[in-house]
Computed example of a mutant assay.
Amino acid sequence: MRLLLIRHGQTPCNVSGELDTAMPGAPLTLLGRAQARAVPAALGHERITGIHASPLLRTQLTATPLAEARGLEVQIRPGLEEISAGTLEGRADPDAHHAYISCLVAWILGDLDRPMPGGPDGHDFLGRFDAAVQQIVQDHDPADTVAVFSHGAAIRVYTALRGGLDAVEAEQLEIMNTGAAVLENRTGGGWGVVAWHRDPLGGPSLEDRAAEDVTGESAEEVLDETAEDAGEGTPRRTP
Rank of each mutant, 00 (worst) to 15 (best):
L4H: 15
G9I: 10
Q10N: 09
E18H: 03
L19C: 14
T21R: 09
M23R: 14
M23I: 13
M23C: 01
G25L: 03
A26P: 02
P27T: 07
R33L: 07
A34E: 15
A36Q: 10
R37V: 08
V39H: 07
G44L: 04
H45Y: 09
H45G: 15
E46S: 03
E46Y: 01
I48L: 12
I51L: 11
S54T: 04
T59G: 01
Q60P: 02
T62I: 06
T62A: 11
L72A: 13
E73A: 15
E73T: 08
E73G: 01
V74R: 04
Q75H: 11
P78H: 07
P78D: 07
E82L: 09
I83S: 04
A85M: 00
L88S: 01
E89F: 06
G90V: 04
A92Y: 02
D95C: 00
H98Q: 14
S102I: 00
L104S: 02
V105R: 15
L109S: 14
D111T: 03
D113C: 05
R114Y: 06
P115K: 10
D121G: 04
F125G: 00
G127F: 00
G127N: 13
A131G: 11
A131C: 02
Q134C: 07
Q134H: 15
V137K: 10
D144V: 02
D144K: 04
H151N: 06
G152V: 05
A154N: 10
V157P: 00
Y158S: 01
Y158K: 01
Y158P: 05
L161M: 14
R162K: 14
G164F: 05
D166F: 02
Q172V: 05
E174S: 13
E174H: 14
G179K: 08
A180D: 02
V182D: 03
E184M: 10
N185R: 15
R186G: 10
T187N: 09
T187P: 08
G189M: 07
G190W: 08
G190I: 09
H197L: 08
P200Y: 13
G202C: 12
G202D: 08
P204K: 02
L206H: 11
E207D: 05
D208Q: 10
R209M: 09
T215C: 09
G216D: 03
S218W: 07
V222S: 01
V222P: 01
A227M: 00
E228H: 11
